[in-house]
Structure formats: C-alpha cells, structure tokens
C-alpha cells in the first residue's frame, strides 16, 4: 500500500470516528469507552506478525508479551463490556405489590 493510500484511509477513518459518536446518553459512556478500548486491542495482530518474523531470542520474548498484552485487551475488554451492557438489557420487572402508584 502506498503511503498516500494509507493516509487517505487514515483521514477518512478520523471522520468516521467523529461522525459515529454523537450525543451518546451518559449511561452508555462507560460501556462505549470500554468497547472502543477493546477494539484497539487489535494491536495484537502486530504481535502475531512480529513473532512470525522474529530472529533473535529477545524479539521472541517481546513479541509473545505483546500478543499476551493485546489478547488481554481484546478478550477482557469485550467481556467486561458485555457484562456491563447485560445489566441494562434486563427488563424492568413489573412491580408486584406496588399499589395504584403506577400511573403516568
């Protein structure tokens, strides 16, 4: 890929990121931060590539740690986000025993 192709992709992605986030309800700030946090764990791909092309002992160690770090970021990030959002999806139970006050 030429440098300018990459820069084009970069600039377009910047605008996509700006457009995608608009007026997020406060409730979702934490889960959304956590989800985007998991997405940057994609650097683990870099670790996979580095280990593939490593050619001395230290590079193997660095690459393996990078894979482990990136994987923690990805796996932990998505799971924690799922747990947080799971709490919202639970439907409010109809209030048994609450008398007459349910109106409006």
């Amino acid at each position: 890929m030429s440098l300018f192709t990459e820069i084009t992709i970069f600039v377009l992605a910047v605008f996509v990121g700006f457009e995608v986030i608009s007026k997020v309800p406060t409730t979702l700030h934490t889960p959304l931060m956590s989800q985007t946090n998991a997405i940057h764990g994609i650097v683990m791909l870099g670790g996979l590539i580095v280990v593939g092309f490593a050619n001395d002992g230290l590079e193997y160690v660095i690459g393996t740690i990078a894979i482990a770090f990136g994987t923690i970021n990805v796996v932990g990030g998505f799971m924690v986000t799922d747990r947080m959002l799971g709490m919202f999806s639970r439907k409010p139970k109809p209030k048994a025993g609450a008398d007459g006050k349910g109106g409006s």
Binding site: F15, G17, F18, S22, H29, I42
Partner: peptide
Amino acid sequence: IVAGTLVGSSGTIL
C-alpha cells in the same frame, strides 16, 4: 490503521 484511528477519533469525541 482503521480500527486504531476509529478508536482515536471516537475516543476524542467521547
């Protein structure tokens, strides 16, 4: 490139 940039710019707005 795309995933990292997406997080960078959406994270800035957030």
